[in-house]
Design a binder for these strands. Sequence first.
DNA 1: TATATATTTAGACGTTTAGCTAAATAAGAA
DNA 2: TTCTTATTTAGCTAAACGTCTAAATATATA
Lengths: 124, 124
Amino acid sequence: MIQNLEILKALSDMNRLRIVTALGHYEELCACQITELLQVTGATVSRHLGILQHAGVLKSRKEGRWIYYRLAPPADADALFQWLQESIGASDELKADRKALEKIAGIGREDLCRMQRGEDCCPK
Amino acid sequence: MIQNLEILKALSDMNRLRIVTALGHYEELCACQITELLQVTGATVSRHLGILQHAGVLKSRKEGRWIYYRLAPPADADALFQWLQESIGASDELKADRKALEKIAGIGREDLCRMQRGEDCCPK
DNA sequence: TATATATTTAGACGTTTAGCTAAATAAGAA
DNA sequence: TTCTTATTTAGCTAAACGTCTAAATATATA
């Protein structure tokens, strides 16, 4: 498949757009943070991240148990991603994500993951 | 659905990319010309054109029995389409389309449609 | 009017995709 | 080592998608 077509396909899903937009604001996020943002299963997030990574949109970095993802689109798709970042944030759903992310980023990895497995320990 | 997501979805199909690329070169084309280019059923072409039109990427103009389509992306997607036109033509499949289109555009509507219904009348 | 024809719509069919649950993997902690 | 846990993989289901054929629509021509 054409590389650019694969990128377009990778971007034409709301949850994946949300991931890309989030990473446009946060430099890098771990899978558990994205899981918390999207409110879907970890497995589903993993699948979406895999699709984005395979399309060459994301790169990952492993650190202990956590895997961090960051945007890394190919140079010749720069114009596309610039358009994305500028125009896509306008939607209400993505504005809400922005707020949710602030909270998620503020919690810290360990507490976030504890929360996710239901220990209900941490900041509400 | 977010407008920009709908545009991305509309563009994430090879045949629709071929249509958009063709219209990037030819100003306007009728459905039968696009049918000849893609080599799929008229019904299928009609569906693809409908999806692109619904996403706001194309506009149509009726002239007698023929319907002509042309690119008409919304202003705030300009950057996206500029990227598309610049970067997407590099693929081999789309270069072949370019050649096929020259032939198709050279035939003329009436002869082309006669050809399509198998009368086998016209330039080979 | 009746016939021909370019396009669209409707319905069927096979493939792809997004989501889930459960099991597997990989890596720290006890 | 054994246990815990973050992530991925496998297998499933339901919905979405691309394509086809056949019928319907709209327009021109005889």
